[in-house]
Design a protein around this nucleic acid. Structure first.
Lengths: 118, 118
DNA sequence: GGCACGCTTCGACGAACGTCAAGGGATGAT
DNA sequence: ATCATCCCTTGACGTTCGTCGAAGCGTGCC
């Protein structure tokens, strides 16, 4: 992992053959792992579920932080991870930034992992 | 994450409502995150794909290590992570330990993540 | 303009992670 | 019994991560 070249565009939905179909190339494995890492934190999993629950108009940081009992700086950090993995999108409305989940990115990830395409 | 209580049985397939259906409880989010973390590494993603590709009889550490160009100690460490997350099972045959993937655990994880049960 | 509010970035700290070399079991062969 | 082989564990190292306070930016309102 020290050898991780961070220069991969992770904002687009991952696109490679399912994990169970054949041995993944190094680069594909890295692409999958980077997205998984973005999601592999209890706070971020909960964030995703909150955003899905909130629906189309999105939720702002100032509402998420107290719900998670975390500082706004910390929540902002987590949202950045999710955004850089393409799992979330934020749009500014006035002074607020509203975050919405990106189901396509999550679907793409799920498709790579799912062994029951068998 | 510093507050992670490691005392959760992660060897069983995760079981909770899909992420997109409602806000996850702290404990459920942790359960999901722990499994994701087990998979959120390029080496482990590649390991899983190798095990799936190898099929029913499994693959031993001594065969995986050179294929990944890593020491056996490191591969053993990664296999342990996967085993503790229930994603992999190892059975001893003579001096070798053969590892096989556990599709049920992966399916359960995928089911929680998949937003297209919608 | 000036100010308040929301969000992000920066800097720092402790905890967790990935890696390997070295050593310690098991198991099977001689 | 001895030895070779495979595997796991331990200890150590450098890196990455999660968290927060403090400071910096954008936007809207007086």
């Amino acid at each position: 992992m020290p050898k991780a070249l961070p220069l991969l565009d992770t904002t687009e939905p991952v696109c490679c053959a399912p994990l169970a179909v054949g041995v993944l190339a190094d680069e594909d494995a890295l692409a999958v792992a980077l997205r998984l890492k973005a999601l592999a934190d209890p706070v971020r999993v909960q964030l995703m579920s909150m955003l899905f629950a909130a629906g189309e108009h999105g939720v702002c940081t100032c509402e998420l932080a107290p719900a998670l009992r975390l500082s706004e700086a910390t929540v902002s950090h987590h949202l950045r991870q999710l955004r850089e993995a393409g799992l979330v999108e934020g749009t500014r409305k006035g002074t607020n930034v509203f975050y919405r989940p990106q189901p396509d990115a999550l679907c793409a990830l799920v498709r790579v992992l799912d062994p029951t395409c068998c």
